[in-house]
Simulated scan of single mutants.
Amino acid sequence: MTERKPLATSFESWVEAQIRAAQSQGAFDNLPGAGQPLANLGDEHDPLWWVKQLIRREQISMLPPALELQRRVEKQLAAIEKMADEAAVRREIAALNADIAKVNATVVEGPSTRLGVLDEDQIVAGRRSRRRR
């Protein structure tokens, strides 16, 4: 705990003296972000800035379940192209089909899904032909 401010000293000079002492001891050397610009310094004030940062940091999805599933299916189909093992591709498609069936059967909020069950054989055959090229 720091010492109490002497009565005869002004608050400003007392704080400045503590800062100078800390600087001379190297307390401010090698701090993370030193020399970097402050994030969002020039941005206009947004009252929901903390919510947006939380959503970005925690990767929270705000989409209705049907749209979230469509987004996930698109990402997984792109990832399937890079998979080496055909059995893993079939397992991934089976998992996606289970999720599609579940969302199609239960979603009551947001837009309805436009996704039907994926044709596993068609996806695998298309993947095979693209890999041969």
Rank of each mutant, 00 (worst) to 15 (best):
Q122P: 00
Q122D: 12
I55G: 11
A66W: 08
E44F: 02
M62W: 05
I100G: 10
A88C: 11
H45N: 07
D46L: 02
A84T: 12
I80W: 01
R128H: 05
K102I: 04
R72F: 07
D43P: 08
A94C: 02
L118R: 01
V73M: 02
L54K: 11
D85R: 11
A66S: 15
V124W: 05
L69K: 03
L63H: 12
L115W: 01
A98F: 09
K102Q: 13
A125Q: 10
L96P: 07
A78Y: 00
A95S: 07
R128I: 05
G42W: 15
M62R: 06
G110C: 11
V51S: 05
S112H: 02
L77E: 06
L54E: 09
K52Q: 13
A88L: 13
P64E: 09
A95H: 02
A87C: 05
R90D: 06
E44M: 02
V107G: 01
K102G: 03
Q53W: 07
A125M: 06
W49A: 14
A98H: 13
L77W: 04
N104W: 01
M62K: 04
A84M: 11
R127W: 10
G116H: 01
E109A: 06
W49T: 09
A79S: 05
G42A: 15
A87Q: 10
R127Q: 12
L63F: 13
A84R: 13
A125G: 04
N97C: 10
A66Y: 11
R72W: 06
V117T: 14
L67A: 11
I80Q: 00
L118W: 07
N97V: 06
A79F: 04
V108R: 14
Q122H: 03
R56F: 04
R72P: 05
R90W: 03
Q76M: 06
G110V: 07
L54Y: 09
R91P: 05
G126L: 06
R56Y: 04
M62H: 03
A101M: 09
L77A: 02
D85M: 04
L118D: 02
V103R: 00
V117I: 06
V124H: 08
D119T: 04
L63D: 13
L69I: 01
D46Y: 01
L96R: 01
Q122R: 10
I80F: 04
I123K: 02
R57T: 14
E44Q: 08
E68S: 14
V117A: 09
V73W: 03
V73H: 08
P64A: 15
N97R: 12
A87E: 13
A125L: 11
V73L: 00
